[in-house]
Nucleic acid binder design. Structure first.
Lengths: 212, 212
DNA sequence: GAATAATCTTAATCTGGATTAATAAATGAG
DNA sequence: CTCATTTATTAATCCAGATTAAGATTATTC
């Protein structure tokens, strides 16, 4: 009896162990799409990240807290949003597998976050602490390159998203969102897409009716 | 007679030489606010940049061209803007002394720019070519760190500007622009500020009347 | 310093999207 | 399977900011 139980425990912890490997493998693969890492470097990098499992609706970062980790989504779906004076939510970013989510402003300036980061599905993320990452920049310079490139791309993507948002009608933006993020569209409720697009759910609903 | 002429030529080229030094000094000082550079590194960096003088209204980058330089404003005032389908201008960014201006999307993706970059005053800029910069990242790693940090900051600043733009009324945004960029406000025409804020010049004029 | 161009103001009218409020449909927990 | 909660739709009314059009100031240029 005890033996069976033991086996189950071992088996489940083994499963956990493998799934962590899987998540970290995903991270290393992701990094290697942009930079070159020797196997030794990959190990150093791997060991610098901690895995974290999130339940659906679990909040990873609350407004008011200081964000002190960069986080890579290995599995699942998250959102970053802030609440305005009237307690209305505005979604700033969605993230799925192989994206990075965070309130970067809080992370970089070490000031209290204005955003929440929340899991929309059961998710697995890999986190690295600010100090650990700063040390990693010295130990593995390619990581500094990775984030330099990451931020360059994030910046221009965001700039073009904003230009779009100002120049294009809500209808056009919705259609573009659908083609660009088809997968996200199918995984999150419609009112969140409205929030991301900067329109009310009622108006999105009207748009959709007119498109039919 | 010839002697006098010679003297004038020499004097003016000497003046030019000093002003280049001045611009490059400004650059090095600017970099050293963020990173550490040895004097040898400072020389390497300095030599990687070329100075460029711009007349008022001179266009540095046309939409359609591929941006192939990063550029630092040593003196003067520039703007980056794009034109929509109805040939209306939308200002994306202003830049004054010690700012960097560019169509980063074009620079980073090597695709034709959708933006124009234009001098609003007689200006002096320092330019570094993409390939030179990429080599510099290897020769002087602190430069890679500089741009990593620069892009991080640019990204979060832009993100917060966008959140503001969506959440706040045009009046509030104008008031914030005035306090944040008082100097720019005094150097560029009002209709350009309207364009930057994403409103019509007529509406900005109305806002201003109501504020009095 | 007069003429022309560039910029700014005012006022009337119009519109994309918000707000409010009610109902309907889908999801999920027990 | 059922009741409660979460999402989504519809329709009426409202408003911030756009558009249009004219005139008034302010800069530039010759």
């Amino acid at each position: 009896m005890n033996n069976v139980l033991n086996e189950i425990v071992n088996f489940s912890s083994l499963k956990l162990y493998f799934s962590i490997l899987e998540a970290k493998d995903k991270l290393i693969k992701h990094l290697r799409q942009t930079i070159t890492l020797t196997n030794e470097e990959a190990v150093i990098v791997s060991n610098s990240f901690k895995e974290n499992r999130l339940q659906k609706k679990e909040v990873l970062l609350f407004a008011g807290e200081i964000s002190s980790h960069m986080q890579f989504i290995a599995e699942g779906c998250l959102r970053a949003y802030y609440m305005d004076e009237e307690a209305k939510e505005h979604i700033v970013q969605f993230g799925i597998e192989e994206w990075w989510v965070n309130d970067l402003y809080s992370y970089l300036t070490k000031t209290p976050s204005k955003q929440f980061v929340q899991a929309l599905e059961k998710s697995t993320i890999l986190q690295i602490q600010r100090d650990t990452l700063n040390n990693l920049y010295d130990a593995v310079p390619a990581i500094e390159r990775f984030f330099r490139i990451k931020f360059e791309n994030a910046y221009v993507a965001f700039q073009y998203r904003t230009i779009d948002a100002m120049a294009k009608s809500a209808e056009v933006r919705y259609l573009e969102f659908r083609t660009k993020y088809r997968e996200i569209e199918q995984r999150v409720p419609q009112y969140m897409i409205a929030s991301y697009l900067g329109i009310t759910p009622e108006f999105l609903s009207t748009l959709r009716k007119n498109l039919r």
